[in-house]
Design a protein around this nucleic acid. Structure first.
Lengths: 256, 256
DNA sequence: CAGTGGTCTAGACCACATT
DNA sequence: ATGTGGTCTAGACCACTGT
């Protein structure tokens, strides 16, 4: 099924601007899997014919999706659906830096454990898991640099959404987890929310981090969202901030 | 001095697009104090005459500054310079929420101490303070809700940039500190960067927070920037995350 | 080279807010 | 009623990319 096979009706008389209608139609194509991450979308002229509007209107719709991080325009090439292989997307949601350094380091990731188990109530609610098929994957990753672990990530995802995921697939991936989600399971993480607390490390995590029990660490609870604000990943990061820091730069973009 | 009194020359033949040239000219007006926060800028038609371009080009320039959080368009009214009184700007850089709550609470702020002292080396470097006139204001604020303190902010700013600041002015402000910076000292905070660590609270801060020494807390080091990436504020926040959390929502905006 | 998106024009008409 | 920004048109030309 290709986008150009579809017929769209854009109504100039309703309250919603035509460019927003087009933006929503294109967004739905992502959701409905007619467009996939990395794919080239039809050029502007084709879209003009498809939606029967002028080129400026198409450009406004594409511009909106570009701002949202859904599409990316490349002059001379075309407009593509963003993916987690793109330079700008890799480690987009990774915020750990070395002390006083402005350079994001790419962490070494090592799988610590991989389990399948029943979801608890919170997980069932957040991940929208039905009672009948309530299995989740439960993963522990160790993150570090030069064999020095600074973080432990606990990841919980619905087994139904990531069926056929195995420890082997997870270990043998050659990219980020979000890239794996995208390519093998067609789940594209669009945005995240994080809640950060300071706690004393417990026994289990202290062993994984290789630090003394009772050391203060960051506990970061992340929700990973995909299209239409659907939560698909629960991640808890435990960070030993002795040698690294959590960084946030905030420009006053109104949207944020 | 008004914007409409000036003459601008936009060159269509150079590499920089005309809309970017216009964006830069308008930005410089902010920096040079020809435009001030809250002020209404000339309407689009006037700008068309001023820059001698078509209206679409002006709109693109304004759109860029709007995305940056510098200008805000209000249909039917005009385009204004953003200020820290605007709904969307108030507490834009405040990220503390109650546990599991999605509502940002507006904290009660109480001045704890106000001092003037010499800057140390780091402060001189970051705030670009000369050797001759190297005084800084050193402020401690307590933040909380219903008389329960959850955070302590240590603020350091150059005395030269905020001359005439007194404890009284600080206490009697009826708005955020960034609003005070903007209105009394003409310093507009455009963006910030924060580096977060987990630490054990020391004696001084534990007393201010009213908690036991050795409790784990967040230590957040913030740099506050104004136009042209000039650092004007050093702020260290110490947060007791027993009842509150630090929150970050990240949409995949390419710019961030 | 042909095809892509990026810039720019010179309007028209609409929705919204104030007077 | 007037003036503001918001939407939309129907093009032209430029800059960039891969063949």
């Amino acid at each position: 099924m290709s986008l150009t096979d579809l017929k769209f009706k854009i109504d100039p008389n309703i309250k919603t601007p035509m460019w927003l209608q087009i933006r929503n139609e294109l967004f739905d194509c992502l959701y409905k899997d007619i467009l996939r991450p990395g794919q080239l979308i039809p050029n502007e002229k084709t879209l003009v014919g498809l939606f029967n509007v002028s080129i400026g209107t198409v450009r406004k719709a594409i511009g909106a999706l570009e701002k949202e991080g859904i599409l990316i325009r490349k002059q001379g090439l075309g407009t593509f659906v963003c993916q987690h292989d793109d330079r700008s997307f890799l480690f987009k949601f990774f915020h750990i830096f070395f002390n006083d350094s402005d350079v994001k380091h790419i962490p070494e990731v090592e799988l610590d454990s991989f389990k399948i188990r029943k979801a608890n109530k919170t997980e069932m609610k957040l991940l929208n898991i039905p009672k009948e098929n309530n299995k989740v994957f439960h993963i522990y990753n160790k993150l570090g640099f030069q064999s020095k672990v600074h973080s432990v990530d606990k990841i919980v995802i619905a087994a139904a959404k990531f069926s056929l995921l195995t420890e082997e697939i997870l270990v043998n991936r050659h990219n980020t987890i979000y890239n794996l989600f995208q390519n093998k399971f067609n789940v594209f993480i669009t945005h995240t929310s994080e809640r950060i607390k300071a706690t004393l490390v417990d026994k289990k995590i202290s062993q994984m981090l290789g630090i003394e029990m009772g050391t203060p660490i960051l506990k970061i609870e992340r929700l990973g969202y995909t299209y239409h604000d659907e939560i698909v990943e629960l991640r808890t990061s435990y960070v030993n901030t002795t040698e690294v820091e959590y960084i946030r730069e905030q420009y006053s973009l109104v949207g944020e």
